[in-house]
Design a protein around this nucleic acid. Structure first.
Length: 1091
RNA sequence: GCCGCCGUGGUGGAACUGGUAGACACGCACGACUCAAAAUCGUGUGGAGAAAUCCGUGUCGGUUCGAUUCCGACCGGCGGCACCA
């Protein structure tokens, strides 16, 4: 027998696997027998694979190999997240093109993964920086855009001045850039966003249906940050003169989770950067003070605002707010403890019941009014079950009080320990549940009560000084107040989320180009908005007056006319009417509602030049239609349109179908009649979304002009080669000479320079009116949000993946990745999946059924591995010295997969020693027929083998690799205790070893004469009959302390066991001649004698 | 500050739904082999004690025949969020 030589064995099998494509994905997989194992997508860093990567690929591979042996059709693939900053930063330093860098580091990465013996289907390898891949990253962006989930907006963004790029909230760590640690500043910039906030509720709800670590789910929940409460409108008064007057159209809306405390709202605070301060500017007496405060605040970095604890603010003089509950006039302040981006950027301050408000009120001597009284502990109980004699003499009535609440006899106390003491002493009930940490769940309280337990309900409040809310619990008061607000039209129930929209544009080179063309001139120029109302409507109906006001406030012109014959509409007549009155030009945006849709189409059918945009709001496209109240109204028109002309005459066409969602379907506009079945959208007719006055999504859509998507047929928008990487804050693509070539011919000329607004600079004028490619690139998180779909069908040029592949393989059965991605990648992937689901591409809406995190592997010194500490372990070095099988097994043996654990070189040697021992057992193998008089020992070995087989199988299924390996070591040790080892047992050992140490196991398998692949051998079934033994060992306790163990027949009766136990000398001794009071027997485990 | 997780030998870690705490491995000690060392193999190894035995799962208390496991308070470590109204 040769010595165990991992190097040659591993090389041999790795080439064999590669040449024979051993692990190519089975073609006979079905949605029932498939198993999709997904290791996280790595960025191929220049320093190569680190031990953490190795942990992920090894764990996934072990699991994949195990599932294969269990008969599953396994999909295990590898790819690279190859777009991103490091390669670009390296390019800036060395002028090596990122593509070259990635080719090299990526190849190195793949090489290293192969050396670990990963059983991956390499034909499905993908890189996110390849055009074939990012074509679909761009497609996903277009999908988002089509569905009204992508928009462009100028707002303050997180800016890293070192990376010269915008960062998503998830990329900001402690106010610093995640990558380079520079302090993040806020900067106003025009950026593209994805409306992930629209999916807040769905993202929250789906968490209940997936098997993920609880804390991960919780972190996502917290990040989404759902709060339920109310929005409340406060009137604003101008009090500069002695007679206060209500400022017209000026209400301040606040969000609160505690509407029950409205009576305690004694002042109001506005965020310095919020909208309200600017709106009130005219009425503010001390504008100079206020303004200087605003300026001072804006100069602070995010970090400063976080660290400064002391609250500051300035009173806004000349205006007062009116508390709608009691009509009190309360002062208005500006303070930076209120943030502009959450809620409405304004709060009602209730200093008595909010710590921050309290602190602020104390500092500025503002009134504090208590409106909630805290009741510490309540118990509601049947009076008969408690013997009250003595209760009120032993405890003072200040400590414990009795009263009737909701018809129940109730005790109330402010001190919990005292309360429990009293309950115990005077209660006749044996069990007392004290529920803690639960607040305001009064239903629960009642429920428990019915179960006749004494139930203690801690810590809830009762409203006081609040008129109609008095004596109500907080929960009840909240409800009642919301009802009251809605009744009086001053507020309504509202759900607020912390989650913000995801900014996806980056001013960097090495990413997928954003597949849009933009016309900056058109986007900033003032527009002429033409509103077209529907059947039976007029200029005052629906959302029109509101939207007119909003648009005019922004300096646009709005044309809003009453159409002729609105009760007996003739589409052509109305279209001609409008064409005669209005000059439609490249700055026109048409917003058409209902039957206005066909009217707009008739207008567009013959125009000389295209308009900027057409927005169809819940359009109707058939002669006879039903609006829910009046039926079978006939609009006289053929409803046959020249769609080609219409499309040519509008640079963008959007359809908004309900109050929230905009669908942009210029490409598919001719499907309109079938899509909508020519009726109003099938919303619940009691809730006609588009009839409401305010539709923020519609306004947003109307304001977004000068952008249009690159059609799918033109994808991919290729990243140009001729760029300068120098970070200037401008996108590097700006400097490419080739990037904009042919764009104008393809996507058209915009408005002529005649319509150029006065604001445009000379530079802008020079390029005014042209459509250009968007020069920003997409956040790399967009690439990694869908890669698990691409693996299913990586060479498909038409679709991101075929429906058949999706149906067969998704969702992912097991996903392993780091906890650092919880509120980034993992959330985004779920978002993408849900959008695909809503768009009808897939029939599931959660991508990863089971998800786990690997723990961090620390350096031998217990610190995080880092060049700085010089404690970095390179997995390739370990593989070179000890072999991949040792590396794999050691990493799995270190501890639980999800725990952080330090590296230990001696531990690696221990694992190698184990493998050597397994290998060396070849010398003592004996064929079954030669066992002879070794029988007895072999019998025990056989039992041991099957016990281990069961345990290892269980552990593999539950990912407890460390204990599985421990068992394999135990079995090997057992083999060393006997003279000869039967081949059958040895084969079972190496079969169990196959997922962990595949090279060695495969080699031994072959050496033992097999001509099949162990990798595809069936996972052996343990022999149930060998698990039972004739005798069992029972521990015997006397008064809870182990005094003896007895061996007894496994089928002994309880009485036999007890008798034998008590007959034991030592047990007798400890019983001291006393009669047992009680003898407890737990079957097969323990006897406890109580004396 | 709020929320979550965790605390077991010299070390990494075992212990199923409360049932013989410390599996397995490292380290250490002793022994075998060797001229010697390494490697390998064997024995021992939670602490105290000569032993019987006692004490031991962060600390204190509780529930239980019995607690690493359940409950309460506290201490310590790690992670998340951070003026989110």
């Amino acid at each position: 027998m040769d010595k165990y030589n991992p190097k040659s064995i591993e090389q041999k099998w790795q080439s064999y696997w590669e040449e024979n494509k051993t692990f190519s994905t089975p073609t006979d997989a079905t949605s029932e027998n498939k198993y999709y194992i997904l290791p996280q997508l790595p960025y191929p860093s220049g320093s190569g694979l680190h031990v953490g990567h190795a942990e992920v690929y090894t764990a996934c591979d072990i699991y994949a190999r195990y599932q294969r042996m269990k008969g599953k059709k396994v999909l295990q693939v590898f790819g690279l997240d190859s777009f991103g900053l490091p390669a670009e930063n390296y390019a800036i330093k060395t002028n090596v093109h990122p593509k070259e860098t990635i080719d090299q580091t990526g190849a190195n990465f793949v090489e290293q993964v192969k050396k670990l013996g990963a059983s991956v289907d390499w034909d499905r390898f993908v890189r996110s920086s390849d055009p074939e891949y990012y074509k679909f990253t761009q497609w996903f962006f277009l999908l988002m855009y089509e569905r009204g989930l992508a928009y462009r907006k100028t707002q303050a963004v997180n800016w890293c001045d070192s990376c010269k790029t915008v960062l998503a909230n998830a990329q900001v760590v402690d106010g610093h850039c995640e990558r380079c640690d520079t302090v993040v500043v806020q900067k106003d910039m025009e950026q593209w966003y994805l409306k992930i906030t629209d999916y807040a509720e769905k993202l929250l709800e789906g968490l209940d249906r997936i098997d993920w670590p609880e804390e991960t789910k919780k972190r996502q929940k917290d990040w989404i940050g759902k709060s339920m409460g109310a929005s409340i409108a406060f009137d604003v008064l101008d009090v500069r003169n002695t007679k206060s007057t209500k400022i017209r159209n000026s209400e301040i809306e606040v969000f609160t989770t505690r509407p029950d405390t409205l009576f305690g709202a004694t002042y109001m605070v506005l965020a310095p950067e919020g909208q309200y301060v600017q709106e009130l500017k005219e009425n503010i007496e001390n504008w100079e003070d206020v303004e200087s405060y605003i300026v001072a605040t804006s100069k602070k970095t995010e970090l400063e605002r976080q660290t400064e604890k002391e609250k500051t603010g300035v009173e806004v003089k000349g205006v007062k707010a009116v508390n709608p509950a009691n009509g009190e006039e309360i002062p208005i302040w500006v303070a930076d403890y209120v943030i502009a981006t959450y809620g409405t950027g304004a709060i009602m301050a209730v200093p008595a019941h909010d710590e921050r408000d309290f602190e602020f009120a104390k500092k500025y001597k503002l009134p504090i009014k208590q409106v909630v009284e805290s009741i510490k502990y309540y118990v509601s109980i049947n009076k008969e079950e408690i013997d009250l004699n003595g209760l009120f003499t032993e405890f003072s009535s200040d400590d414990i009080q009795e009263f009737t609440y909701n018809g129940k006899y109730t005790l109330e106390a402010y001190d919990k320990n005292l309360f429990i003491k009293a309950l115990k002493k005077y209660s006749r009930l044996s069990s007392i549940s004290i529920l803690s940490g639960v607040t305001e769940n009064i239903e629960n309280w009642y429920k428990k009560e019915e179960e006749k337990e004494i139930f203690c309900y801690p810590n809830f409040g009762i409203s006081i000084n609040s008129e109609f809310l008095n004596r109500l619990t907080t929960q009840e008061a909240k409800e009642k107040m919301i009802d009251w607000l809605e009744e009086h039209n001053v507020g309504k129930r509202k759900i607020q989320y912390k989650l913000r929209d995801w900014s996806v544009s980056r001013q960097r080179f090495w990413g997928a180009p954003l597949p849009m063309v933009v016309n900056e001139q058109l986007s900033i120029s003032k527009k002429q908005y033409v509103f077209i109302h529907g059947y039976g409507g007029d200029a005052q109906s629906n959302f029109f007056p509101w939207m007119k006001q909003e648009l005019e406030a922004k300096g646009h012109t709005v044309v809003l006319l009453d159409l002729p014959n609105t009760d007996k509409p003739n589409v052509k007549e109305q279209a001609d009417f409008l064409k005669e009155k209005i000059s439609f030009n490249e700055n026109t945006v048409i917003v058409a509602h209902s039957l206005g849709g066909p009217v707009a189409f008739r207008i567009l059918e013959n125009l000389g030049a295209p308009i900027a945009k057409l927005i169809l709001a819940d359009p109707v496209f058939r002669p006879e239609f039903n609006d829910g109240e009046r039926s079978d109204v006939t609009a006289s028109d053929s409803f046959v349109f020249d769609f080609e002309k219409i499309k040519a005459n509008a640079d963008a066409i959007s359809i908004i179908s309900d109050a929230k969602h905009v669908t942009i379907k210029k490409e598919h506009i001719d499907e309109l009649s079938s899509i909508f079945n020519a009726r109003h959208i099938e919303v619940d007719l009691s809730e006609r979304h588009l009839m409401v006055a305010e539709i923020p999504a519609l306004l947003e859509e109307a304001l977004m002009t000068g952008v249009k998507p690159v059609p799918f047929s033109d994808l991919p928008v290729l990243l140009p080669e001729d760029v300068d990487f120098k970070p200037t804050g401008q996108s590097p693509l700006t400097y490419s000479k080739t990037f904009q070539e042919g764009v104008e011919e393809k996507y058209g000329n915009g408005p002529s320079s005649a319509s150029t607004s006065a604001k445009a600079s000379a530079d802008e004028k020079a390029t005014a009116g042209t459509w250009k490619r968007e020069v920003n690139t997409l956040d790399t998180f967009m690439c990694s949000s869908w890669y698990f779909f691409r693996y299913l069908d990586p060479h498909n040029e038409k679709e991101f993946a075929s429906p058949e592949a999706l149906k067969t393989w998704m969702p992912v059965d097991f996903y392993l990745g780091g906890p650092e991605h919880v509120n980034g990648h993992l959330l985004y992937s779920r978002f993408f999946t849900k959008v695909l689901f809503d768009a009808g591409y897939i029939d599931f809406d959660e991508p990863f059924t089971v998800h786990r995190h690997q723990g961090l592997i620390l350096g031998p010194d217990g610190r995080k591995m880092s060049k700085r500490w010089g404690n970095v372990i390179n997995p390739s070095d370990v593989v070179d010295v000890y072999g991949a099988d040792t590396m794999r097994m050691y990493e799995m043996f270190m501890g639980p997969l999800e725990d952080d654990k330090p590296w230990d070189d001696a531990g690696v040697r221990g694992v190698r020693r184990f493998l050597d021992r397994v290998w060396n057992l070849q010398d003592v193998l004996v064929k079954d027929e030669e066992i002879g008089n070794l029988k007895l020992e072999i019998g025990d070995l056989d039992k041991e083998t099957h016990k281990v087989l069961k345990k290892v199988g269980d552990d593999l299924a539950t990912l407890n690799f460390n204990t599985a390996i421990a068992k394999l070591m135990e079995l090997t040790n057992a083999f060393y205790k006997v003279e000869k080892v039967p081949i059958t047992n040895y084969i079972l050992l190496i079969t169990m070893l196959a997922p962990f140490a595949p090279h060695m196991a495969e080699e031994l398998w072959q050496l033992l004469g097999h001509d099949t692949q162990l990798a595809f051998a069936e996972w052996p079934q343990y022999d149930e009959s060998k698990l039972v033994s004739d005798t069992m060992t029972i521990a015997v306790q006397v008064n809870g302390k182990v005094r003896a163990t007895i061996d007894i027949a496994s089928d002994a009766s309880e009485d036999d066991v007890k008798a034998t136990a008590m007959a034991d000398e030592n047990v007798k001794k400890w019983m001291g001649g006393n009669e047992p009071k009680k003898v407890i027997y737990v079957k097969g485990k323990i006897v406890n004698v109580v004396v």
